[in-house]
Design a protein around this nucleic acid. Structure first.
Length: 271
DNA sequence: GCCTGAAAATGGTGGCGCGT
DNA sequence: ACGCGCCACCATTTTCAGGC
């Protein structure tokens, strides 16, 4: 590689640019990219990040903090390339059964398995799944590290451990980005992002468990309702049968009375 | 409230140049 | 031949402003 330009003063995480301004991705940088992308996707899912574009800006900023100087667009491109390479490899496995090592196969598999909508081209599904979770005007999120989202009732707490990521209609996305940057830097950088991500996972898990319980409860209730409906129906049928039986008995009694009358008249004539 | 068209967002793909 | 990084373009969906 001729005429390389070293952008980073440190000896590690060195990035080179060629005469044609082609950047190079080191193995470590790509691995970091996948890790950050996975994290940021979690934040996108939970609505902390509003769009994919912002996601790549955040990834880029975090990469910069770790000494990897790539733009959001470059990060996005790298992800696309990695995904394409991954798919090509998988296609070849399907077609020819043989396998050459695919870089970051495990990492990409994990990311795609968590987000199946990304593994195939299906925009409508993607949109319905992720959605634009919030309209820009509604964009108002609060994160509290002591309490997972939705579990805190003290939004005004001044506890320094707490972190708030807030954007309302009066703030621009850029303001929000900068404020978020400020808060995150002040509060311990990527560790907090990781904690948010972890907390989100816990909440998601709890929500899933709750959802499962509710679903099972609903199924049980439906069965009970179904059983009760059946019981009511059977009871109605029993009543109807009973009524019919009573009517038949009345009819029998009526006929017997007529018979008795006739017999009485016959006896009177005979004797 | 509904409709419409422009703009934005997003993922996929083809092609180019380069290196191996 | 193949892989990689990048760019440009396409198809589709969503958002949003404007008009009725």
């Amino acid at each position: 590689m001729a005429n390389m330009e070293e952008l980073d003063g440190s000896t590690s995480n060195v990035i080179y640019i060629t005469e044609e301004h082609r950047i190079e991705w080191t193995h470590e940088a790509a691995k970091e990219l996948l890790k950050l992308y996975d994290e940021k996707c979690d934040m996108l899912d939970s609505g902390i990040i509003s769009t994919q574009k912002k996601l790549w800006e955040f990834v880029s900023k975090d990469m910069n903090k770790k000494g990897y100087y790539y733009t959001g667009a470059q990060c996005e491109n790298k992800w696309k390339t990695l995904k394409r390479t991954y798919r090509n490899k998988m296609d070849k496995i399907d077609k020819y059964g043989h396998k050459r090592p695919c870089p970051f196969e495990n990492e990409i598999t994990e990311i795609l398995s968590k987000r199946p909508q990304e593994s195939t081209f299906n925009r409508s599904f993607l949109s319905s799944k992720l959605g634009r979770l919030k309209k820009k005007d509604d964009f108002y999120y609060q994160m509290n590290l002591n309490d997972p989202p939705g579990f805190s009732d003290d939004g005004e707490s001044q506890d320094i451990k707490n972190v708030k990521l807030v954007q309302n209609a009066d703030t621009t996305d850029e303001d929000f980005l900068q404020n978020t940057e400020y808060v995150v830097q002040d509060s311990g950088s990527s560790q907090i992002v990781e904690e948010i991500s972890e907390l989100r996972k816990v909440v998601t898990k709890q929500n899933k468990v709750q959802s499962d319980i509710l679903r099972q409860s609903n199924e049980l209730n439906q069965k009970i309702v179904h059983y009760l409906d059946g019981a009511t129906q059977r009871e109605c049928q029993t009543l109807e049968l009973e009524e019919t039986r009573m009517e038949q008995q009345n009819e029998i009694i009526k006929q017997m009375k007529l018979q008795n009358n006739l017999l009485q008249k016959l006896l009177d004539k005979l004797g």
